[in-house]
Design a protein around this nucleic acid. Structure first.
Lengths: 214, 214
DNA sequence: CACTATACGGAATTCTGATTCCGCTTGCAA
DNA sequence: TTGCAAGCGGAATCAGAATTCCGTATAGTG
């Protein structure tokens, strides 16, 4: 494996996990690249180009590649950040006073962050590997499980729903948040509410939120 | 515009809509190409390669390109076929004894054909232009409208649902039918039923179909 | 202040597929 | 059966990105 190296103190580590302090300019560039890539991928989706990321970060392509050995790795790094946000929201949902609302809000949030980030959307749709790895890394699966169990205990969530259904729903919702054309344009929040209503326990006391008109 | 040409009788027309009979071999090849492409795209998705389509159809690449000026056009032709099937199913749903079941079956069908055809799945997810054009061509929009109105009149479908929601739902369902990995694998029929339950009118008499265990 | 390990920039290269081109075939009408 | 327009095959070309390479620049150290 990796040879043992003595740990030197330093503010940031290399991406490959090796312990070595980065030179100040490198650290600065690293941040600039991530920031630029985040914006670019969010706006243009996964086929934003590496040279453009470099340009946006005011850096040469070579530099981008020193920090991220290839595009896929850059994408994965960005995805990891987003999943961290998701996990955070899930934890919040678990703490929520109302278990059912906690779950719903998590789902709404998942749809929203996909609506705001075309890149994430595409990762969810076409990079199951990256997605599952990211989810695993932040423990999203267990969080979903908790969210589901708690909402079921409260009686609002249908009993036959399983935690695996949550990422599946979130994923499917993501697909239409991206619509920029056609009859579905801008209606995705309706779909979110429909899916949520489908998760309600048959005799639930809560009233379904009426779908908003366009 | 197109210059006026006298219409000559003939069994098949050119793709470009010009009226001219195709030579027998050309007609045969045309069919072979479509058949091969259908299978290839269904299996491998939209990035199946043109030379492979040619190979599968036992034809040279050049021939593929004589029949379809470019890949996008080939994809559109295949999509058109699928949408024809969808429209057919929608008409069937409109005739169905039970309006609610007619609508549900249409949605289930839409999910199923995407599950069976990765190419269609990807068209739905990333070619809004092709998709909308195909839908328009077969009159799917009006069909959805009829389906919705009828199910609402029967009382089973929630009143605030609009026809535009149907293609949106179908589209979103398609996303996970493709999952080949991760927790959602093989569970898409559950999602279909969840979405359907979300469409039910609040006081509906029908019992929700229980989600099937994995 | 020198020195050198790190980093940088960006032109050049490579890869992957789509698409074109053109000499050869072949239906089919006369 | 002949003539030739309509078709065919597939090697060659083109195009759009990703990724590499290497000469130059510069933090950080003694």
């Amino acid at each position: 494996m990796t040879p043992v190296t003595e740990i030197k103190p330093g503010p940031t580590r290399n991406d490959d996990g090796s312990d070595r302090t980065l030179r100040a300019d490198a650290r600065r560039n690293h941040g600039a690249i991530i920031a630029a890539a985040k914006k670019l991928f969010a706006d243009e989706g996964l086929d934003a180009q590496m040279p453009d990321v470099a340009k946006a970060a005011k850096v040469g392509v070579g530099t981008v590649y020193r920090h991220f050995p290839n595009k896929e790795d850059l994408i994965a790094a960005l995805a990891a950040e987003r999943f961290e946000r998701l996990a955070e929201k899930a934890r919040e949902g678990i703490e929520a006073e109302d278990p059912w609302e906690g779950l719903c809000d998590f789902i709404r949030f998942a749809a929203q962050i996909q609506a705001d980030d075309r890149g994430l959307c595409e990762v969810m749709g076409s990079r199951p590997g990256v997605m599952n790895a990211s989810a695993l890394a932040v423990g999203l699966d267990e969080l979903c499980d908790k969210l589901v169990k708690r909402a079921q205990r409260s009686g609002e969530l249908r009993k036959d729903l399983e935690w695996q259904d949550i990422p599946m729903i979130a994923c499917s919702l993501g697909r239409i948040t991206a619509a920029e054309e056609g009859p579905a344009l801008g209606r995705w929040p309706r779909l979110v509410e429909i899916a949520i209503d489908g998760m309600r326990a048959p005799g639930s006391s809560k009233l379904p939120k009426p779908l908003t008109r366009t």
